[in-house]
Computed example of a mutant assay.
Amino acid sequence: MSTYNEVRRLAENLTPDEQMRLIEDLSKSIRQRVTLTPKPKRSILELRGLGKEIWNGIDAQEYVNQERDSWNG
């Protein structure tokens, strides 16, 4: 029998109050582990080149000029 199934079977034999206490204790333990696990740091440089295919064939200066012209109406 797997450990999970064995633990679940044992938990089902607890009183409802004991089951609630077990759930609270497990939740607290999990929350502590999750908050203690450092998330890997990310770098803005990971986005370099993302979406570059959108700009293929577009002249940058022409695009900027069109945008500026649209500001003036």
Score class of each variant (00 low, 15 high):
R9Y: 03
S27C: 02
P38K: 15
D17I: 00
G51I: 05
Q61A: 10
S27I: 00
R68L: 13
E67T: 12
E18S: 14
R33V: 07
N72L: 15
N72C: 15
Q61L: 11
W71F: 14
V7I: 06
E12R: 03
I54F: 13
I58K: 10
Y63C: 05
R8H: 12
E46I: 06
E53R: 01
Q19R: 04
S70E: 03
Q32P: 01
I23P: 00
N72T: 13
E53D: 10
R42Y: 15
S27T: 04
E67A: 14
A11C: 06
Q32V: 13
E46C: 09
D69L: 15
P38Q: 10
G51W: 00
I58F: 04
R33F: 08
Q66K: 15
K39N: 13
V34G: 05
R31M: 08
P16W: 00
E62P: 01
S29F: 14
E62A: 14
E6F: 02
W55H: 07
L14G: 01
R9P: 00
T3Q: 07
E24A: 15
K52V: 00
I23T: 11
T15D: 04
G49A: 08
T35E: 02
E18P: 02
N72V: 11
Q19F: 00
A11T: 06
G51N: 10
L14S: 02
D69M: 14
M20L: 12
S70D: 11
L14H: 03
G73L: 06
R42P: 00
M20C: 04
V64I: 08
V34D: 01
L10Y: 02
L47I: 01
E24V: 03
D25W: 08
Q19I: 01
L45Y: 13
Q32T: 06
V64P: 04
E12T: 04
K39L: 04
I54Q: 10
I23L: 13
D25S: 15
G51S: 09
E46L: 05
P40H: 10
R42E: 03
S2H: 11
E62Y: 14
T3N: 13
D59N: 13
D25G: 09
I44K: 09
N5Y: 09
R21P: 01
G73R: 09
N65T: 15
L36K: 03
I23W: 08
S27A: 09
S70M: 10
G49W: 00
V64Q: 09
E6Y: 05
N72F: 14
E6P: 02
L14I: 06
R21V: 01
E67R: 15
A60W: 04
E62L: 10
E24M: 14
S70V: 09
S27K: 14
Y4D: 08
M20N: 15
K41P: 00
Q19M: 03
Q19P: 00
L45T: 09
L36V: 07
D17V: 04
S29G: 11
V34M: 06
G73E: 05
I30Q: 03
G49M: 07
E46F: 11
L47M: 15
S2A: 07
V64H: 13
E12P: 00
A11S: 11
I23R: 15
W71R: 09
K52W: 03
W71H: 07
A60D: 06
I44Y: 12
I23D: 10
